[in-house]
Design a protein around this nucleic acid. Structure first.
Lengths: 141, 141
DNA sequence: TTCAAACTTGACTATTTTAGTCGGGTTTAT
DNA sequence: ATAAACCCGACTAAAATAGTCAAGTTTGAA
């Protein structure tokens, strides 16, 4: 099991943004340099974040991105959802509601994955961008 | 994020085994047919489960596999561990202890993934094979 | 004692996903 | 006007996954 880099980068970039967007919009170029994430890839990620209204863009010179909500109101679930990071953990969850593994009934472990997804979703729902920024400042990074 | 089929199959197969190993060893052929998992793939999986002493093999005709411990004592963490299903969720967790993303310091989200891993591990530690079998019998599958 | 069911092992491969790259735009402050 | 910055879609190399395949070994039963 693993998360993809897309979700991880999205969170990294938003923490960075939350720390620096006090006055001016933050350019992806700056985030790219500070966080070591490819600029082109960041653009893809921010395109999604913008469509889900997590950030706003400011075009033109001196432009960049700003948060569209308070950091406290942005939960990690919102972020992962925006960049299509699926919490759907296993193949059988993707298939039709009734069956798994090409069979007409649910597989013996189906309920387990339901529970697991809830468990993980709860974890991410309990974490806001603000929490991460605070945690980060405390550690003097 | 997703679990791989290997982990999922391992759990499915062991639930099946736990249900049927009362008297005789259970052949992989039977598990393959009941659960719809490729026999060759099951062999790879059970090879790992045997090495980690979760199951015992009985060779020869009428052979198969039996659980090596009571179902109650087999936690899901043991199973995932045996088949190399990693709870390591993100890239930065694979890298050197001190740095992420090729930098000499931990990335801003590093602690988050630590917490997440603990959260998931706790979930799997709290689930035994017996729990799954019971849950399954209740639902009359 | 021969046979076949079943386990054992290791190498190989097609498919899918990921993590980007690339090339061309458009917008707007200066 | 120009350059910084956003915007968009197509493309691709690498890695991981989910198997397949081939060639065994072991052993209960006929």
């Amino acid at each position: 099991m693993r998360l993809t880099s897309k979700g991880r980068y999205a969170v990294m970039a938003l923490v960075d943004l939350a720390k620096f967007d006090n006055i001016n919009p933050v350019s992806l170029r700056d985030i790219s340099l500070r966080q070591g994430i490819s600029l082109d890839y960041l653009e893809q990620i921010f395109s999604k974040l913008r469509k889900k209204e997590i950030v706003q863009s400011v075009r033109g010179i001196q432009g960049g991105y700003v948060l569209n909500k308070k950091a406290k109101e942005i939960k990690l679930t919102n972020i992962f959802d925006a960049v299509d990071e699926k919490i759907k953990t296993v193949q059988c969850k993707k298939e039709s509601k009734k069956g798994c593994n090409g069979k007409p009934i649910k597989c013996v472990t189906h309920n387990l994955w339901d529970e697991l997804e809830n468990h993980i979703t709860n974890f991410f729902d309990g974490k806001s961008l603000e929490d991460l920024v605070k945690d980060n400042n405390e550690r003097r990074f």
